[in-house]
Write a protein that binds this DNA or RNA. Structure first.
Length: 874
RNA sequence: GGGCGCGUAGCUCAGCGGUAGAGCACUCGCUUCACACGCGAGGGGUCGCAGGUUCAAACCCUGCCGCGCCCACCA
């Protein structure tokens, strides 16, 4: 026990407590007899630094983990980082370029470059994990993993080899999305389409027989150099006579066929489409549909999107956009440029590089995603895995039902190198290591390993079991797979969630997690997406420095309402910092009053206030349980906030002050100290999942504890307190009513008044007697003798008169009573109307009718009392 | 071209069939012995629009209007 300081300083306690928790092993699963509770973290990129999206994602996970730990589960939060192939390689390459030597990876060579990246990882790769600690994330750091650590790499290789052996992973030559800046293939998901204001050019190609021209329209003139056909719609009357003929490709001079394909829309452009099979997905599909047309596949470009040697000599080496200009100029010179018109259309960009993607014909490795998707679809249909909110299941289904082969090879150096070896004739040998490949190939075959690495998401997909030791059959794997919940942003459902589902089901035979909780994006206060370039991004660490980690966590939790995007306003963080201060001060007050009670079971209580607060703790606990069960983080925060501030601080602590005052009954005071201490302890437990630091600190400052709050026990209360609740709610209502009346007729706040009660029943009189000290303290009224008129307070079946010397403000009092009477009458009449309306009594639920009748009677009686009071005023 | 979501108090959002809620902001009081990052009392909404179902609709249905996102091979 330590004296609670006058002010709460989060920065002082956070680092100390976190280090203590981590060192004491509190984050590690250590309850072999308890039911496990498992979450795997979405591994942040090693290159990453904590942004608000991480802060939200990990706060929610930590709330779940800490809650279930308090509930007695054997909680494990698996943590680690992702090697993030492209992102990391780009970071290190940039550093090389900016370094004094100004070198490139090509100049260094592969081996040296990869070693440099490892060096970078060792020295700079722990930024994000340090920042997660500042947030308070209770991950099991002792088991921290990295997607390229030895064990995980073993899992990646094993999966590749197995899928290949099963025919679910293969090498093929196809059009891929080629990133000319990064000089690698990327998957469909890594392409983002942007709508741009471009141009569409119309060009004429002369018919081979000299009988005229056929006009085509294109947005990409540079690809004309690789045209292999012109296609028209088979039903297009304008072109029917040309189908089967040939035309001459200008500039190049090649003779190409005119073919018919229903893909072509007659009423778009000129109705005739140039076919460049090696540089356009649609054209490639046409090429496949017309194997007899002799359409050539001409690779026009080099990997950096300069024009290749397949182009006419004066185009070779030109950038693709320079080539575009030259094609237009050449057509214009030939008199074959019909027109150029503005055209708004979608252009593919690489999501990492930001350059225009080129469809490019290369050999790549593909995963047969359509086959793997089937069990993954079924698992969600059957409910083995459930999305929260459920609406994301539609998104998942829609994508999985139309899933395309997944290109998993990347022409990078940083990543898991593909375990495939090639013989002299190009035969492929896939094995876990070179010896295995050699065994497949035979002893004298010279082998060369595939130069490429795997898509980062190929390895991320194995995270839920790769981190637990797979392919070894470890105890950890047996105990913690499948996980309970995955918490992630909806934006990576395709990239990551779907792929974990596929790989988890395929290799483990079970879903990787039972629930997928998808949250939204964190935006700025005006709803704009946060970005560094826009300058509107808020650094969570700055917020933590300013308001404390607990305040930030509480804000994010309170604002998380089932997947909706969060517009973060710093004032909210400030507000919840105030809440932390409130809690701190409440604890300080308790400590100064000798309040302290330790124990899990609620202490016996005789006093209504004490019985009432026990009941409030019970109700709150149940509401918090329900909120977690429903993944309603906002409800959790809201419920806890209201309980602590509006119930415990505003009423309970105030109501106990008279009981603890000098001269109060010693027995009652003792009981109150124990109950208040117990209730405060429960508050610390209930708030701990969201505000771990301040609660742990208070836990220890209030008194000696044999264990940390993080490992305490969630309240378990079975306690019926209905009659106490009724009594205290009556008292709260009466105090509130008197305060309102006092304010409205401008009674000075400090003025002490007497009251005369009329028409009260015996129970009410008894309550007035019992709670006289509270009424004196909170409402500043004491029972007095009748002395004529004054302020009239109508409350719950009795009328109270607060006599005032020469009534201060008669007009205000009359207006107040009139207003209250009208409100009561309006309610009464509304309910009467409803009860009188045809069908209500017959068709409404019985409870609704009874409630309406009771409410109508109560409001009616109140109206009458108010009218009577008005009459007395004259 | 499909699909999804959102429009409730000045702001940010809950509520999703029974008399409109929270936080912040706002107004008026208050050096009340835990807390001015506070205490007390207030003001403020025809729940986007129009129909329909129902005894009863912010809540269910239909259609509009306005925002946002995702997916998609019209060159």
């Amino acid at each position: 026990m330590t004296i609670i300081d006058k002010t709460f300083d989060p920065s002082e306690i956070e680092a100390r407590l976190y280090a203590h928790w981590e060192a004491s092993g509190a984050f590690r699963p250590a309850r072999p007899d308890a039911q496990p509770f498992t979450i795997v973290i979405p591994p942040p990129n090693v290159t990453g630094s904590l942004h608000l999206g991480h802060a939200l994602d990990n706060t929610l996970q930590d709330v779940l983990i800490r809650y279930h730990r308090l509930k007695g589960r054997d909680a494990l939060w698996v943590v680690g980082t992702d090697h993030a192939g492209i992102a990391t390689q780009m970071v290190v390459e940039r550093q090389l370029a900016e370094s004094t030597q100004g070198t490139t990876r090509q100049a260094m060579g592969r081996e040296a470059f990869v070693e440099t990246v490892w060096d970078w990882k060792r020295t700079s790769g722990s930024t994000i994990t340090r920042q997660l600690r500042r947030l308070g994330a209770s991950c099991d750091w002792a088991h921290e993993r990295f997607t390229m650590d030895e064990g995980f790499s073993k899992a990646v290789t094993k999966v590749f080899v197995e899928l290949h052996r099963q025919g679910l992973l293969y090498r093929a030559k196809r059009l891929v999305n080629w990133d000319p800046k990064l000089k690698t293939a990327i998957s469909d998901l890594e392409v983002e389409f942007r709508e741009i204001d471009g141009m569409m050019w119309h060009f004429r190609y002369p018919l081979e027989d000299g009988s005229g021209f056929i006009a085509i329209a294109t947005t990409r003139p540079e690809t004309i150099l690789g045209d292999g056909a012109v296609a028209v719609n088979p039903d297009d009357e304008r072109y029917r006579h040309l189908v089967g003929k040939r035309c001459i490709l200008p500039i190049v001079g090649r003779s190409i066929p005119i073919i018919a394909d229903s893909y072509v829309e007659a009423d778009f452009g000129s109705g005739a489409v140039k076919i460049t099979a090696a540089h356009d997905q649609n054209d490639y599909a046409i090429y496949l549909r017309h194997p007899d047309a002799g359409i050539p596949l001409i690779n026009l470009m080099n990997p950096d999107a300069t024009m290749s040697d397949a182009c006419p000599p004066d185009y070779r080496g030109l950038d693709r956009y320079a080539a575009r200009d030259k094609v237009i100029a050449d057509f214009n010179a030939l008199g074959l440029l019909d027109k150029a018109e503005p055209h708004r259309h979608q252009v593919p960009y690489g999501d990492r590089s930001g350059v225009v993607i080129e469809p490019y014909l290369t050999d790549q490795w593909y995963v047969d995603a359509a086959t793997l998707a089937q069990p993954a679809l079924e698992a969600v249909r059957s409910g083995a895995t459930q999305f929260v909110p459920k609406t994301w299941e539609k998104t998942y289904f829609n994508w999985m039902e139309n899933i395309q082969p997944w290109c998993v090879s990347r022409q990078l150096w940083w990543g898991h190198r593909i375990p495939a070896w090639y013989g002299p004739d190009g035969q492929i040998f896939v094995a876990e290591d070179e010896a295995g490949a050699q065994a497949l190939a035979g002893p004298d075959v010279a082998l060369a390993r595939d130069e490429d690495v795997l898509d980062t998401w190929f390895s991320s997909a194995l995270w839920p079991f790769g981190t637990l030791g797979w392919p070894d059959e470890t105890a950890l794997l047996a105990r913690h797979y499948p996980g309970d919940v995955l918490v992630t942003g909806f934006d990576i459902i395709f990239f990551w969630v779907a792929r974990m589902m596929m790989q988890g089901l395929h290799f483990m035979g079970e879903v990787p997690f039972k629930t997928v909780y998808c949250h939204g994006l964190v935006r700025d206060a005006s709803g704009a997406k946060m970005s560094k370039s826009k300058g509107n991004s808020v650094d969570p660490l700055v917020l933590i420095d300013k308001y404390g980690a607990d305040a930030l966590r509480f804000t994010l939790t309170a604002m998380e309402s089932q997947g909706r995007d969060i517009k973060l306003d710093e004032r909210r963080v400030e507000g919840y910092r105030n809440f932390a201060t409130k809690l701190w001060n409440a604890a300080r007050f308790c400590q100064s009053n000798g309040i302290g009670g330790q124990g899990i079971a609620p202490p016996p209580a005789t006093q209504a206030v004490n019985r009432w607060i026990v009941g409030e703790v019970a109700k709150t606990t149940a509401a918090l349980d329900a909120a977690i069960a429903a993944f309603r983080f906002d409800d959790y925060a809201e419920t806890a906030y209201q309980f602590v501030w509006s119930r415990f601080c505003d009423w309970y602590l105030e109501l106990t002050k008279p009981l603890l005052a000098e001269g109060a009954d010693a027995g009652i005071a003792a009981e109150t100290r124990i109950v208040a201490g117990w209730a405060l302890d429960q508050i610390l437990v209930l708030l701990h999942p969201v505000m771990p630091f301040i609660t742990e600190e208070l836990w220890h400052r209030l008194r000696y504890r044999p264990y940390d709050l993080i490992l305490a026990q969630w309240p378990q209360i079975a306690f019926d307190v209905d009659e106490a609740a009724g009594e205290i709610n009556w008292l709260i209502g009466l105090v509130s009513a008197i305060r309102s009346a006092r304010t409205e007729v401008n009674v000075p706040p400090g003025a002490k008044l007497s009251y005369i009660v009329a028409d009260a029943d015996a129970a009410t009189l008894a309550r007035l007697e019992t709670h006289a000290p509270s009424l004196a303290w909170l409402a500043r009224v004491t029972a007095g003798a009748a002395r004529g008129g004054g302020v009239q307070v109508v409350h719950s079946g009795a009328t109270y008169t607060l006599p005032l010397e020469g009534v201060i403000d008669l007009a205000a009092e009359r207006a107040r009573l009139e207003r209250n009477a009208l409100a009561a009458e309006k309610d009464r009449d509304g309910l009467a109307n409803r009860l009188a309306s045809p069908g209500f009594v017959e068709r409404a639920k019985p409870g609704a009718v009874d409630k309406a009748r009771a409410d109508m009677a109560a409001r009616g009686a109140e109206a009458e009392r108010l009218r009577a009071a008005l009459a007395r005023l004259g």
